Computed example of a mutant assay.
Amino acid sequence: MAAIRHRLRLASSLCVVVCSELSCREGRRPPVANTLVEELYLGRDPMLSPLPDEKPQDFDRGMTHVSHRDIDMVLSSAVQPVSFWLELGAFEGGSAILTAQRVNLHGLNTSVVAVDTFLGDAHVIWERTREERLRKNLLRPDGTVALYDRFRSNVHDAGLQMCILPLPATSVVALKLVASLAARHVTPLPQVIYLDSAHEGGEVLLELRLAWKALSPGGILFGDDWVFAAGDNCVQEDVLKFAAEVEADLDDDLGKEVQDLRTLGRVRAGVFVSYQSFQWFMRKRLVAQAEATRDRADPGSGYSCWSDGFDAKLCCDEKKYGPGGFRNCWDLVFTFESCCKNS
């Protein structure tokens, strides 16, 4: 654990000395984002175009479930250096802004690329009343969706317009593009991919498969809404299904390494969940590491249930809380049956 903290401090101190002239706070994009501006936007930076005269209202300005502890843990435990952080599902920019703030705090030279269609969904736009759409300026005068303007305004308000690069695309298109750019040696594969876009069964699994191909060896794939189970949401089901497909390439040491940085519960070998922010995490083995351990990969049917203030004494006390123990401890994966039967 001390080595992990030291690595983050060392990376930060080196980048403060070597990369300070490239600080996005000083108006210079980090290298990966700068390359993408030239390659994709023909040198015309989308964050430098004029903002709308009438600032759009926010749906949930700054809304994000990911915490600074999650971000710090990922920055320190992904393969170093973390030069490329790819976010899928940017919405109004809350999580991208927090990520860029943590990157700057640690003095890192990480390009944060935020992918979204910036079209919202039926609930966000089209199912709202006519009055809401007018009052909140959800549409531009020409009838197109104003979410992209909201994103850009929020990033500018945070002073991070050179730290975050938007990429208007679906997650599938973006992941294929990133893999193609890396294959042509234009940019590296991202060391971090954050998935917070689709929540539909099958679509999540498709995104996971493409993201894994686009992720650097030693990189971290993580995402939101582990316990969100409204409607047809199948995040949890698809994550576990995908983990079974790639179990030999999952690094099961992640949870043990980062316990002093972010307490995680282990839901199966190589898959970890934060109780407090409901993010899920996987680290991709380095190539040599994967080959050395492929034949002895443990599918890991057990659960590591206790973290962040949750323990058997609190959660399993049926005398105090009745059958099933303290219900606030449980979700769809962490259950009384799986956590308390041997406690």
Rank of each mutant, 00 (worst) to 15 (best):
Ser216His: 13
Ser23Ala: 13
Arg102Ser: 12
Gly300Asn: 11
Phe59Ala: 09
Thr335Asp: 04
Met162Cys: 10
Val239Gly: 04
Glu39Asp: 12
Val287Trp: 14
Gly325Phe: 05
Thr187Glu: 01
Val17Tyr: 08
Val192Asp: 03
Thr99Gly: 02
Leu210Tyr: 03
Phe272Pro: 02
Val287Lys: 15
Gly143Thr: 12
Pro166Cys: 12
Asp53Pro: 06
Asp121Pro: 02
Leu160Met: 14
Ala248Leu: 01
Gly218Glu: 07
Asp142Cys: 12
Thr99Ile: 12
Phe336Cys: 03
Glu132Asp: 15
Pro50Ile: 10
Gly265Asp: 01
Arg152Cys: 14
Ala229Arg: 15
Leu205Phe: 12
Ser20Trp: 07
Leu105Ile: 07
Cys340Thr: 08
Arg69Gly: 05
Gly324Phe: 01
Gly324Trp: 03
Arg69Phe: 14
Lys256Val: 11
Leu138Asp: 02
Leu8Asp: 08
Phe91Val: 02
Ala179Asn: 09
Pro188Ser: 09
Ser20Met: 10
Arg7Tyr: 00
Gly300Leu: 07
Leu189Met: 10
Ser304Ile: 02
Glu245Thr: 09
Tyr194Arg: 04
Leu264His: 02
Leu36Ala: 01
Ser76Met: 12
Leu98Glu: 06
Leu75Trp: 03
Lys284Ala: 04
Arg29Asn: 07
Arg61Tyr: 10
Gly322Pro: 06
Met47Tyr: 01
Val267Asp: 00
Leu14Cys: 13
Met73Asp: 02
Trp306Leu: 08
Asp252Asn: 06
Asn233Phe: 12
Val155Glu: 05
Asp45Arg: 00
Val239Trp: 04
Gly27Val: 08
Lys341Val: 12
Phe334Ile: 10
Asp149Asn: 14
Ile164Tyr: 04
Leu332Pro: 04
Leu10Ala: 11
Thr263Glu: 10
Ser67Trp: 11
Trp212Cys: 07
Trp212Gln: 05
Gly231Cys: 04
Glu291Lys: 14
Arg9Gly: 02
Leu240Met: 14
Ser77Asp: 11
Phe222Gln: 02
Pro299Thr: 09
Phe228Val: 10
Met282Tyr: 04
Arg69Asp: 15
Ser77Ile: 07
Cys234Trp: 10
Cys339Ala: 07
Lys213Trp: 05
Ala3Ile: 10
Val124Pro: 01
Glu38Thr: 05
Arg209Leu: 10
Leu51His: 01
Glu337Val: 08
Leu139Gly: 05
Thr110Arg: 06
Asp116Trp: 09
Asp70Met: 10
Val115Phe: 12
Gly325Ser: 09
Arg25Val: 04
Leu160Ala: 09
Pro31Asp: 11
Gly94Ile: 06
Gln236Arg: 06
Asp253Tyr: 09
Ala114Pro: 05
Ser343Trp: 13
Ser49Gln: 14
Asp317Trp: 05
Asp116Leu: 03
Arg128Gln: 15
Ala146Asn: 15
Thr110His: 08
Leu314Met: 09
Val124Ala: 13
Asn233Thr: 12
Gly255Tyr: 03
Leu177Glu: 11
